[in-house]
Design a binder for these strands. Sequence first.
DNA 1: GTGAAAGCGCTAACAG
DNA 2: CTGTTAGCGCTTTCAC
Lengths: 339, 339
Amino acid sequence: MTDNLTLEDIARLAGVSRSTVSRVINEQESVSDEVRQRVRQVISETDFRPNQAARTLVTRRTYVIGLVIPRSTSTFFADPYFPRLTMGIAEACNRANYSLSLYLFHTEEDEKRLFPRITRKGLVDGIIIQATQAADVLFTQIAKSDVPYVVAGRPLNAPNVSYVDVDNVAGAHNAVRHLIRLGRRKIAHIAGPRDTTVGLDRIEGYCKALSESGLAIDENLTAECDFTEEGGYYSARRLLAQKPDAIFVGADMMAIGAMRAVREAGLRVPKDIAIVSFDDLPPATLSNPPLTTVRQPIRRLGLKLVETLLDIIENGPTPPRRVIFDTELVIRESCGERR
Amino acid sequence: MTDNLTLEDIARLAGVSRSTVSRVINEQESVSDEVRQRVRQVISETDFRPNQAARTLVTRRTYVIGLVIPRSTSTFFADPYFPRLTMGIAEACNRANYSLSLYLFHTEEDEKRLFPRITRKGLVDGIIIQATQAADVLFTQIAKSDVPYVVAGRPLNAPNVSYVDVDNVAGAHNAVRHLIRLGRRKIAHIAGPRDTTVGLDRIEGYCKALSESGLAIDENLTAECDFTEEGGYYSARRLLAQKPDAIFVGADMMAIGAMRAVREAGLRVPKDIAIVSFDDLPPATLSNPPLTTVRQPIRRLGLKLVETLLDIIENGPTPPRRVIFDTELVIRESCGERR
DNA sequence: GTGAAAGCGCTAACAG
DNA sequence: CTGTTAGCGCTTTCAC
């Protein structure tokens, strides 16, 4: 099937002009039913599909959106969060008839070399970019080009950008309040990196809940690490020295690690140490005991990200759009009962 | 930064012709150093990047490859397998300066509507498509278009296609032999779907190992299910009635489910039931006890898939390329010691 | 309602 | 070594 058909060919076969075929393909009104039928017939017989590049060249629309995952999170593909988010984004793209280009950076060199390519014309109509520390450089670059973009998660040092995020402060606040309500008093926190808003916001919610209840905020009760299982494990080991009766962990994967450390220390969850975490991804259900955790509406996040980006593509970047989703505390067994 | 610069503009600014600028951009030799410098200067000052669509229109190259995940596997994004594979593919794309378009189908309707769009000209240079039952229809379609493609995993009913797969028969064979060597005699199997080669091949390896050792193949000792944790759980529950002393599970996620069932039945892994599974993904390490499992070189699979596709794009689809990777049995605790 | 013609921004002969 | 010219396949005025 070596078909290199063009509009011209279809036009000839249907006995009309190229313009008419174009009109039929683009579903314009001003074509007589009879001609439209004939053209459609030829198109389906020949299995003709217009060349996308040619179309893009004149319309300035690629119908592609790019999803950029900066390097520090690319290892996070080990975390189920990003695949989930990607699914949501892909679903929205499918619906809107957009293609989704995935730019998964592994190294800083990747970013330096590849990112400028992405922002060239005729490649993507807009970009969804994951907020991370490494992303900050990219923000500057992307802002200089005039490619529309939206950030997944609140960026740290980027005013006036559009983003979609969850209310991490409220989620963390709620989680810790739950522990307090259950009678826990010495609550530790395994936090995400302090150079991300995710890390920072959850710390803020944690502190807020403590303060409200008149509990002291002890620096030694907070450990900072990346979002991995390993990180959670080692952080918990360190924190255990302080003999906390509960840990609020900033992500499910870290909570799995933390529980491993607790188990190894001969302590029991939730009896000796109650645990509440953040995300509600599959590992939360499968762990033993299952995790009480703050659920993020990841799929909706993905859908909204695309919706927002398309809005920006259509109507320009100002004013910045900001969408914050609520979270929901899912109570399972790792937090135990009221004491 | 509303730049709508074209080659022509750069040419004017540098005092040369459009062709010369094009030559500089495409790194052709035949340009004097002096001119090259001046042009480069202007390009960097203006931050000019050539329009990709225009380029594609004439070169017939998009430098985009598509990754198609048919519907039945799209839920598998819950499984860490696909994210991992995607990472490998993305890494290879980055290296080769290709963009990666992700087509994640959720429904049959997605496939019907979207797939024809993908195979149009000027959108992608080639496609990597995941082998599944649902993919069979797509194979027919893609074969009709002349878009180069390669299959991830061996497809069931598609002769003459190029694919990259692991040796599932040998991997399963090896896994089951290990159980036999450890003294297990009544070995059950939780298999993947029989309408996929993954499911079928692993069953074949399982049976082969049994036969070789003179063990009877009992149909009641094999349960078939999808690749989910839930599936593994319910299959194990059923199989437990037969009182096996070992289970070879066709995927880590199913093994996690199977272990849950075993635990609930008051049995212990590996003492009462030894378990060996397939994949070696993070859940295998994190489970309790950690899983003995057949490691797949997923990242290499991804890299090879891209390499093969680029080869096909360059040199045509014939002869079909077939690459089979070896697997490796990773021994942890779920299989226990020799009895 | 339909066709002719111009042009999107680039590459690639072909001259010189 | 460099410039001129002719398209790539489509959309989009502008006539009729």
